[in-house]
Amino acid sequence: MKPLMLQGHERAITQIKYNREGDLLFSSAKDVTPNVWYSLNGERLGTYNGHTGAVWCIDVDWKTTKFLSGAADNSLRLWDVSTGVEIGNISSNSAVRTCSFSYSADLASYSTDQAMKQDCEIFIVDARDNESFKNSEPILRMTVPESKVTSLIWGTLDHTIITGHEDGAITQWDLRTGKSIETVKDHQGSINDMQKNRQGTMFVTASKDKTAKLFDVDDLSVHKVYVTERPVNSASLSPIFDHVVLGGGQEAMDVTTTAAQAGKFDARFFHVIFEEEFARVKGHFGPINSLAFHPDGESFSTGGEDGFIRVQSFDPTYKEFRFDY
């Protein structure tokens, strides 16, 4: 395969996401401008200029009209995807760590960091039109005093949200009552990323405890565990095969204290059911911070601590590959 290297960011990539059809790829980094790219040829469509701090999280609605970004400048901004014009801005008391549109994109949720005397909080806001986004009070506001939220997804039919926490806990919240329904603690380290499968019935976590696990969206039961020997920063499920790809690598602070060995920054492919690694793809010269499968399953992208995004299209050998069992 001949990957495309997208060099639009000056600092480490924090998150990358495809839109529903997969023709656009959104990216954010610890610099101040999220980017959008045509995934097919790597052409940059534009940048969303306005933030003044590291952008931690991004999301795009399913119609690809609205784009959401949360940053360390204590703001959550809503953008018009096609023009890059800011159409909404909610300021918060601390950095916005996670943000996500509901499936219909009528609602959006975001969470803020624990900072000074400020507790970590989860907000649900109305994102239907610009006025409601700008002016309204949040529909729901939930305080999380224990451990801060590090990843967030919407549950089945937008009735619940599921949050991953810094201490490894995963909590499901009922949006009607604003209370937590269930909390499980299957991970020992921070949940860096959660991504649902195509059907929205399961999600895969990526944790600092060097494992990724497959959970049920409804009852948060663990189905599968994928073990590596480095912290996992991101994991994504293939929409067409029983494959899951894990990205991670040793943290920057540990680089000098551990033996250098090639192959730690690879994207690693596991079989979803047999939990066994079967392939690797090299490329980054730093840990992978975020990765995503293209919705058609024919390619995948990785964003690294090195500031590059790599778009890899699979060779026929990948599609011909059959797992031996």
Binding site: K2, L4, D315
Partner: peptide
């Protein structure tokens, strides 16, 4: 869609400043 933001002045097609075709790599099957 016309390009916007920092890509406003880019010509149609990938800009070589931001999009680089990387070296050929192989997926390594274990």
């Amino acid at each position: 869609w016309p390009k916007f933001g920092d890509s406003r002045n880019d010509k149609p097609g990938p800009n070589i400043a931001t999009t680089i075709p990387a070296e050929e790599i192989q997926m390594q099957f274990l």
